[in-house]
């Protein structure tokens, strides 16, 4: 989706340039187009494959749409009395609540790290940087063992709690707060008698909003697509997110065929909320460009 965002804004900025600079650079254009095709082909494949019935899926031409979309949707909804929609709701819950809390925690922590000087600030920040470099999959099993000790394994909390603390989100919020909130504005607020909390809420937070939207989106996508953490944490299939749920459809043991059509259709549906989310939150990203121009 990020490619789409830049793809949309690129022509606008090109047309603003003087005519002599508007010559098309063929090499980069062809390179970018090739990149776009490379990224979009799998999406197109999923889109077309979801319209094919079981009989058509592997026997008809790959890019030729089939006639099974409605029956696929029906079968998917009928699978174990609508288990798929339970998974979708679970994913929405994990990703929505997790990303919201994560954005809140990142906002407060990033602001504090950027605007206050206190003992151990650099130590905390460096630890966070180390956390950014560590892939979250590495933590899944230790986190499971901890959750099991706390009696929280196989609960909604076991997936939600580890998603809230995102070192990358805090890092991003810190950078964003440092760059977009002038110290003079905070001083003015304090001189006017606002408490620290009020200063953060009414002055700093609105200025950080575009950054926090970014953190929210990043976390939402990360949690939505997360596989290993919920796979390890959850045993009860009615708590599965859609990623783990579809995996059980794909691997039903040797004696049962993989439910390819259901998995493909399910994958398509599971991508839709992400697309909607990006399109609807895109305008906050444009705001990002303007808010960078505050003079201090």
């Amino acid at each position: 989706m990020t490619q789409d965002a830049t793809g949309v804004s690129a022509p606008a900025s090109v047309s603003a340039l003087p005519a002599r600079l508007r010559r098309i650079g063929w090499a980069p254009t062809v390179g970018l187009l090739a990149g776009a095709v490379y990224c979009l082909i799998p999406v197109v494949w999923v889109l077309i494959a979801a319209t094919k019935s079981t009989a058509q899926l592997f026997s008809t031409f790959t890019l030729f749409p089939g006639s099974g979309l409605l029956s696929n949707l029906h079968d998917l909804s009928a699978y174990r009395n609508g288990e798929f929609w339970t998974w979708m709701l679970n994913s929405a819950f994990y990703a929505g609540v997790g990303a919201l809390l994560s954005a809140a925690v990142s906002g407060i922590s990033g602001y504090a790290l950027a605007k206050y000087r206190f003992a151990g600030r650099n130590a905390i920040f460096n630890t966070l940087l180390a956390g950014v470099l560590m892939p979250p999959v590495v933590l899944a099993i230790p986190q499971y063992l901890l959750m099991a000790k706390a009696g929280l394994a196989d609960s909604y909390w076991s997936v939600l709690l580890p998603s809230i603390l995102s070192p990358y989100g805090i890092y991003l919020a810190r950078i964003y707060a440092a760059g977009s909130i002038p110290d003079s504005l905070l001083e003015a607020s304090r001189i006017d008698g606002a408490s620290e909390w009020r200063t953060f809420r009414s002055v700093a937070l609105p200025m950080m909003a575009p950054g926090l939207v970014t953190v929210f989106l990043f976390q939402f996508v990360a949690i939505w697509n997360n596989f290993l953490l919920p796979f390890i944490m959850l045993g009860d299939d009615s708590k599965f997110p859609v990623t783990v749920g579809l995996f059980t459809l794909l691997k039903q043991g040797a004696q049962a065929p993989s439910a390819y059509t259901l998995v493909v259709t399910g994958s398509l549906i599971s991508v839709l909320p992400l697309i909607v989310l990006f399109l609807s939150l895109q305008r906050y990203w444009r705001l990002d460009l303007l808010s960078g121009a505050v003079k201090s």
């Binding site: 933590l139 230790p142 986190q143």
Partner: peptide, 23 residues
């Protein structure tokens, strides 16, 4: 990844010490 995960258990324990409760 799981193998890496197990070896990283020590690191993670210290990072997440705040989250675990003595239960």
């Amino acid at each position: 990844r799981i193998a890496i995960g197990l070896t990283a258990a020590g690191v993670a324990t210290s990072l997440l010490a705040g989250c675990s409760s003595s239960g």
